[in-house]
């Protein structure tokens, strides 16, 4: 990493840590000022990460999807983009700041333990499909993580959320939270599905087979089926909402494993970089 990248990367991590800490303080002690500062810090973290991504893209001359480190930071960027986009449209979703800052800070922490140097592009990756496939993968993961964040807010409970009403001018309608969770899961399911199919087309072009049951392909399919099943349990069988929320959080872990955990356990041709 060059100096600017390094600066932006660590600024993002620290800003997210600060944002999470202040959001937690604000919710635990019922104070609104720390929350406003936390919101600003997380927005600044998004700006810093954007600068980091652009700088790295320009320097390496390829989109920053190639290494595990890059994939993780791009996913954090997508989560922050969705969060800020959502907050701009619906200010009452600001409460998501707490889970979003926690998730993104954890991912940045994980990424800091990985090799951070840019890797030269392997031939399999010199393909337009890299951009399509990886964008949908990280975008899909971000949608699932935002869905899980809504679940965390739901699990805070109606009473607690209403008690926070005094602190925060606007809070999401507790009754509308289930719909928001569903919307993000459906959005994520679509993005993840497109990722799987675009990946199979790319695999055909690169290796001559569109599906080889490679561990990453397999776990991506498991995540997709799990979310499909979850949506059906909620829509068709009216699964209790709290249980559904816990399951969406667990399902988010399978997505995390599919994207970044598989290569710790299996040998896969999908190794990054």
């Amino acid at each position: 990493m060059n100096t600017l990248e390094s600066l932006m990367y660590w600024a993002t991590t620290l800003l997210l840590a600060g944002g999470f800490f202040l959001a937690l303080v604000s919710i635990v002690f019922g104070k609104s000022r720390p929350f406003s500062i936390a919101r600003l810090l997380v927005f600044l973290a998004f700006i810093c990460l954007t600068v980091f991504g652009i700088t790295r893209w320009v320097r390496t001359a390829h989109p920053p999807f190639v290494t595990l480190f890059e994939s993780m930071t791009v996913s954090v960027w997508f989560v922050l983009l969705m969060f800020h986009g959502l907050r701009a449209r619906l200010p009452q979703t600001s409460i998501l700041l707490l889970p979003v800052s926690a998730i993104t800070f954890l991912l940045m922490g994980w990424s800091s333990s990985l090799p951070q140097e840019a890797s030269p592009l392997s031939v399999a990756l010199t393909n337009t499909w890299l951009f399509i496939h990886a964008s949908f993968a990280t975008g899909g993961a971000a949608a699932f993580l935002i869905g899980a964040s809504f679940s965390v807010v739901y699990l805070i409970g109606r009473a607690r959320l209403e008690s926070l009403q005094k602190t925060f001018a606007v809070l999401p309608d507790y009754n509308l939270l289930p719909k928001s969770i569903l919307n993000f899961l459906i959005f994520g399911l679509i993005l993840w599905g497109v990722m799987i199919v675009s990946g199979s087309i790319w695999a055909h072009v690169a290796w001559g087979r569109y599906w080889a049951w490679d561990p990453i392909e397999l776990w991506s399919l498991i995540s997709w089926l799990l979310y499909g099943l979850l949506l059906h349990t909620r829509l068709t069988f009216r699964l209790p909402q709290r249980l559904f929320c816990w399951l969406t959080i667990l399902a988010a872990l399978t997505v995390t494993f599919s994207l970044w955990g598989v290569q710790y356990v299996y040998e896969t041709i999908h190794s990054y970089g």
Binding site: L218, W219, L221, I222, L225, L229
Partner: peptide, 18 residues
């Protein structure tokens, strides 16, 4: 119906991952 089919498929795929 779709629920049961997806559930069976999921069980099969998880088994194949193990």
């Amino acid at each position: 119906m779709a629920f049961f089919l997806i559930a069976i498929l999921l069980v099969l795929v998880v088994l194949s991952a193990l």
